[in-house]
Nucleic acid binder design. Sequence first.
DNA 1: AAGTGGTCTAGACCACGTT
DNA 2: ACGTGGTCTAGACCACTTT
Lengths: 255, 255
Amino acid sequence: MSDSARGRNLPLGQVASAAAFSPLYQQIKALLVQALDAGEWKPGESIPSEIELASRFQVSQGTVRKAVDELAAEHLLTRRQGKGTFVSTHHEPRVRFRFLRLASNEGEPQPAESRVLDCRRIRANAEMARALELKSGDPIVAIRRLLSFAGTPTVVDDIYLPGALFKGLSADLLNGYSGPLYGMFESEFGISMVRAEEKLRAELAEIEIAKCLGVEPGIPLLCVERISYTYANRPVELRVGHYVTSQYYYRNSLN
Amino acid sequence: MSDSARGRNLPLGQVASAAAFSPLYQQIKALLVQALDAGEWKPGESIPSEIELASRFQVSQGTVRKAVDELAAEHLLTRRQGKGTFVSTHHEPRVRFRFLRLASNEGEPQPAESRVLDCRRIRANAEMARALELKSGDPIVAIRRLLSFAGTPTVVDDIYLPGALFKGLSADLLNGYSGPLYGMFESEFGISMVRAEEKLRAELAEIEIAKCLGVEPGIPLLCVERISYTYANRPVELRVGHYVTSQYYYRNSLN
DNA sequence: AAGTGGTCTAGACCACGTT
DNA sequence: ACGTGGTCTAGACCACTTT
């Protein structure tokens, strides 16, 4: 097939709407994302070996490798030499670290504790609808939670989720769960956060927020507005966080 | 050479202290970084073709390709199909965008203007020495500058540079230069900023800073502490910025 | 037409982890 | 011993840019 392999598309039975056109390895990549999105392999599980995938998609191992390489670079997959390639999961601390960017002024690690202050069903306002690609008035699960480090209240998060995707979500379920929130979203609702965009601003603590954090109103807070996306680049979370940055800071790398 | 190529090191004449051991393409990568650091190819110039590099290092084109691929992913190099591979430069807006993370609440682009308020020689205090891997008391160039967008003062930066690396730097030179600061560092001092680490906090505007920005003292500001690194991971800039975030925000992507 | 990077293949061997 | 991903090679052809 060395000749017929160039410029071609994959057999139509395999190529779905998302995958199309151009480089073979991009088509493979799209097919893999599609399979991940469909839940063919769950977070933490291994995907088929490169040789199996090559045979399944009728391409060479090298082409599969390039597709998997890129997905690993984007942290959708995790390679482990000698063992296989695995679907990334928020139950690994390494992944969580990518989404929780607070670090202590001292070098110490941070024993984090999450407490849910509120959880209710509301209707999407214009801002939520825009962020989550819904319609105004669509059902939303609204959560307010407090993050504490070493016993010190540090972050208040207001989290807004599409009601359609998080059917049974309740305060009890949230509080009964230890470990990262995104880990629970994975396990309980089959929704994997893969990427996020954030907007950061400085603000003055409002009374309500200050109460939650146990600080004086009017102290400066770091306001972090986040939209999180799952596999197919679909937004599935809007989150507005208020961070006390006297003992902790938001770390970032420019590459 | 298909057999002798595995597990070997490059000929000793080529391998320098930084490069050593293990995967061939990593050795090539280190050699390329070393060449960049030595200024063998200047920012904006093209490096030799893959075939030339393969011949120079006595490896296959594929191995060079993998080394160059990684350097391109790290933005040290920029590939252009049909033309060649080029040393990245801060004179391209695309690169500048990576280090200037402010965006407008409206979607508009931002005509930026930089004005130098102060430029003097000082001695490194403990914090500067630690950040820049110098000794306390070593010479430092300290710059204060104001960034304005669409005529609105928005950022005050305090910039600290190792005096040894920026000999002729003066307020006149700074003000006589239009375009990005890092572009000037490249052209005038041969120092390329490649990567940076930032710590973000919220603060209240101090009187001095508020005056520069034309705002009331006590409004909330975003404080951004940055350490910038050049090719060999050597820190060459400490920068503390104070951002007004009413019309602009700091954008970030979590991948 | 010639030169560059971009894609694809095929096959070999290495390093790691499990059986 | 076997299967996994990791590295390396060699060669073919494609797509883009310049001459």
